[in-house]
Nucleic acid binder design. Structure first.
Lengths: 192, 192
DNA sequence: CTTTTACATCAACAAGTGTTGATATAAATA
DNA sequence: TATTTATATCAACACTTGTTGATGTAAAAG
């Protein structure tokens, strides 16, 4: 809106991009300042500390995923359609905010206690919810009778790295087509 | 064998474990020394520099993957069996050397130029080889006619994070069963 | 006009970083 | 026994890190 938020927005963009390239620990406040064409001290106009930047953005994007899966979980969708909805939301969010999703996937290890434990608990909760959907699908016979743990793990792994397709501007991907391809991969595999 | 190699082996174990926990940048030479119950300067008996440690172990484990896929590529296996062999080798290596595989997956960003470019080139080469196998499978009709790029991407994503199952001693996984489960997931998906 | 707010610059700090050199000791080797 | 080798300790270096404080300026708000 006003100039303040525009400058802060630019700061966030630059920070997330740098963190994606060089990692959280590898990105210095001076790196960010240089990219913003300003002094180091100036960066602290936009954020309280480097750690606070990580925590804010991490839990913000993490919250979006949790909100989504909670809505999906209580919906009247079938298990298969719930899984499709998870894939769909994941791709939508990743295509719109790739660097924040990348932050979530790559940099949570840099959180410090006790916040790290809080994050891991929430992460576990997310996985539990996916697991419960798959379990329901297996029990009702619409999904194969495979190892529940590995099914959950494999499903999540298949979508967790999609941000690579969007952080690289060279790769232009159609989200709708991607959604279909990934859903088909998870549900049907690659064999004809 | 002798005491020298035993001590160096212990140093490597400790280093890889610490790097897995705290990241490469987050692990200091003093951290490693503390874990080894010795002085910082002592660490340099085992390695020339922190960067050299990363490079050595990274290219060592990376080389194992390349050697494997090269052998698979020139084999007389069918495309499907080639993919199965890739999964099989990946799981075997991951179960035996989980922390090194984790290093390869998580820490390559910390390489410096020009070595980083060299690594990325090799990484691209590996992906190209997987892509060529899938392409052959699609062309011959044994694999579904899905997007080649996404199929390659999804297949690799499904196996790239298996080290999480082995770096955590709480999770004991049977490699043989895991291999079957992952192969089935990739080939058949999860739908009944 | 006055006062607050946003933003900029410069210098500096305390702590932590990888790494080296000098030196001592015990073990292995010759 | 003499000598090399592996390992240990201690101190110190040059540098980078996140962060703060003092100070100035220009714009917005009252």
């Amino acid at each position: 809106m006003n100039v303040v938020n525009l400058k802060r927005k630019r700061f966030l963009e630059v920070s997330l991009k740098l963190i994606h390239e060089k990692g959280f620990k590898g990105t210095t406040m001076r790196d960010i300042a240089t990219q913003l064409n300003c002094d180091v001290a100036n960066v602290y106009n936009y954020v309280d500390s480097k750690q606070a930047l990580l925590e804010e953005k991490l839990f913000e994007i993490s919250g979006a995923f949790h909100e989504s899966i909670n809505n999906i979980l209580i919906s009247s969708y079938s298990p298969v359609d719930k899984l499709k909805a998870i894939v769909s939301f994941h791709i939508q969010l990743t295509s719109r905010r790739p660097f924040e999703v990348a932050l979530l996937v790559n940099e949570w290890r840099n959180l410090k206690e006790p916040i790290l434990s809080k994050f891991l608990e929430e992460k576990g909760g997310y996985e539990d919810k996916v697991r419960s959907i798959i379990k329901e699908g297996i029990n009702s016979g619409v999904l194969r009778d495979m190892d529940l743990e590995i099914a959950t793990f494999a499903m999540l792994s298949s979508i967790r790295w999609l941000h690579d397709k969007y952080t690289d501007p060279a790769k232009t991907v159609n989200p709708i087509e991607l959604e279909k391809q990934i859903s088909d991969f998870i549900l049907e595999g690659i064999r004809a």
